[in-house]
């Protein structure tokens, strides 16, 4: 089992004059599911993006380590899976073409069988050769999970993971988190009580105002 850990040291974010959060000091470790909770606009998505290295902090430091070795920021994308309502995949390409592109840009060899298996797991097996422009919002949400999981990342950040999903979709997501991601570090940013029920620990973002 790989040992992934994430430490946030005095993390602060300010947009203009508005303080989003300050003094966040946390250590998150492999094998646990963490929930980020707080009302709308409290900074859950911002913190998720900061952890993913997409948004910079105003002050403070975030350290990602794998088996005790620090991961350089430019290599973080190899270890990270991210699902978010803001994430958009390429509509003009098919699901398989999208997955092939995401694999190749990471410098990996595209394994079509693995991609098709993931599509099957998320009940999109018969739509692999269809362009994403023909997908419903729920199907696109499931594609985002495949996008996040296909390179077997150690850290998964799931921002509102069940938005647009029906009950069947939610159940696939919940069983994936419970059964297949037990060795990963999972962070769920959500207000849905059913999403937060999966978490071992809840972090109230509003505590850091």
């Amino acid at each position: 089992m790989t040992n992934y850990s994430l430490s946030l040291n005095n993390v602060q974010k300010v947009f203009g004059r508005r303080l989003i959060f300050k003094n966040i000091n946390l250590t998150l470790t492999t094998g646990r599911v963490y929930g980020l909770s707080g009302r709308n606009g409290s900074g859950k998505s911002t913190l998720a993006k900061i952890i993913a290295g997409i948004t910079s902090t105003t002050s403070g430091k975030i350290e990602h380590t794998l088996n005790g070795k620090e991961i350089k920021p430019e290599k973080l994308h190899d270890h990270l899976g991210f699902v978010s309502p803001y994430l958009v995949l390429y509509d003009e390409f098919t699901a398989l073409e999208n997955l092939e592109f995401f694999t190749k840009i990471r410098g990996n060899k595209f394994d079509k069988d693995n991609a098709e298996k993931l599509l099957e797991d998320f009940q999109l097996g018969d739509r692999g050769n269809d362009e994403l422009r023909g997908y419903s919002s729920g199907m696109k949400q499931r594609m985002k999970f495949i996008f996040a999981l296909m390179h077997s990342p150690q850290l998964l950040i799931l921002d509102e993971p069940t938005s647009n999903l029906d009950e069947a979709g939610k159940s696939i997501v919940y069983s994936t988190i419970k059964n297949k991601l037990s060795d990963n570090l999972v962070i769920i940013a959500s207000n849905e009580s059913s999403d937060l029920a999966l978490c071992d620990e809840i972090i109230e973002i509003e505590k850091y105002k």
Partner: peptide
């Protein structure tokens, strides 16, 4: 415009994006 910038930020280093 398509909103795919975030996707690119998540899958590759900035130098790779600029080169491509």
């Amino acid at each position: 415009e398509r909103g795919t910038t975030l996707t690119l930020q998540l899958i590759a280093a900035p130098a790779t994006i600029y080169s491509g």
